[in-house]
């Protein structure tokens, strides 16, 4: 990678200012950023890397008035192991614990996991070999190319798969992303081509309201390699139970989608229903109803349907 200036930001405001100044990259755990620099995946290289880890008091995990608050610099390991998170926000703990390897979870932060760059193999090609739509180019090379692991839902020009595990669980949990500028529902935090952070904006906190009592949570993923891998497809379900029936639910897909993809049709198919084989099959079918297969990724429709079906059955 190229030489760069390394600046230790001591406040969020300082980090935002440095980012706004242009040609700077923010670094928390660095597990994603450094690989992008080593491989020269972007058209330009940052002159400055802003280290956020020295900003004090931004790595907390706490419950306040029934609200889970996680500082942007909280490590994935700590979220996965937190008794507070495991107790009421189990889907998040499960998702955080599935990210990559123990070593990466020890370095990676929640904000970094939410803001990581695409894992599309065209996007990540070294030396910006494929200057794709997502980087300001004119086409998504995955469409005519090898799209075995690309998005079946949410694609629009770009069909990049969505890499974050935690974002899927947080979307099902109805989280809010707090930045130095605003609070924004996580469903609105992402667009097809990435997140909606402004030039002078960075994530400072994640807030999640406590689920109603009797809520069941599931986070389930399929990855080719079980030891460590990005999810090819994943699903989070947060369901309020009424007896053995599901009274209310949120179902969110990840992996083979361009951004956290809530499947309201599947949610409607589950609401008011008992958890059984037939209903789970119907929910799975509904979840992939709008899926659009590219030449190589039709299999992801079947896989995702199965994943959703089994996640529903696990609510029983």
């Amino acid at each position: 990678m190229n030489q760069f200036n390394h600046v230790n930001a001591s406040t969020v405001a300082e980090a935002a200012s440095l980012k706004a100044g242009g040609n700077a990259a923010l670094m928390a755990g660095g597990t994603d950023l450094l690989t992008t620099l080593i491989d020269y995946i972007n058209p330009t290289q940052p002159a400055t890397v802003v280290n956020l880890k020295n900003i004090p008091n931004l790595d907390y995990i706490k419950e306040e008035s029934g609200m889970l608050k996680i500082g942007a610099l909280a490590r994935l390991t700590d979220i996965a192991d937190s008794s507070v998170v495991k107790d009421k926000w189990a889907a998040l703990a499960e998702a955080a614990g599935k990210v990559a390897t123990p070593q990466i979870r020890n370095m990676g932060t929640i904000a970094g996991n939410l803001c990581q760059e695409s894992r599309c193999w065209y996007y990540r090609s070294a030396n910006n070999y494929f200057h794709c739509l997502r980087k300001g180019g004119v086409i998504c090379q995955a469409v005519p190319g090898n799209n075995t692991y690309h998005a079946i839902l949410g694609g629009s020009g770009c069909f990049s798969p969505f890499p974050s595990d935690t974002a899927i669980a947080l979307t099902a949990l109805g989280a809010t992303v707090v930045t130095n500028k605003r609070s924004i529902g996580i469903e609105d935090f992402y667009e097809v081509l990435g997140n909606t952070l402004g030039n002078d904006e960075l994530v400072t906190e994640i807030q999640v309201a406590a689920p109603a009592s009797g809520t069941k949570q599931v986070y389930s993923r399929y990855a080719l390699r079980k030891s460590f891998d990005f999810p090819v497809s994943c699903v989070a379900i947060v369901a309020t139970m009424s007896g053995s029936n599901v009274s209310d639910c949120k179902i969110v897909l990840g992996g083979c989608v361009t951004r956290p993809w809530r499947v309201t049709g599947a949610e409607d198919a589950l609401k008011g229903k008992a958890v059984n084989e037939a209903n789970a099959e119907a929910v799975g079918t509904e979840a992939v109803k709008g899926a659009l297969a590219l030449p190589y990724n039709k299999w992801l429709i079947q896989l995702t349907k199965t994943l959703v079906k089994r996640a529903v059955l696990s609510l029983a």
């Binding site: 193999w121 090609s125 070999y129 494929f130 090379q141 190319g145 090898n146």
Partner: peptide, 12 residues
């Protein structure tokens, strides 16, 4: 896996 159009390795 190679990109058929360019010959570039997609999983190096």
């Amino acid at each position: 896996i190679y990109d058929r159009e360019t010959g570039m390795s997609l999983n190096p």
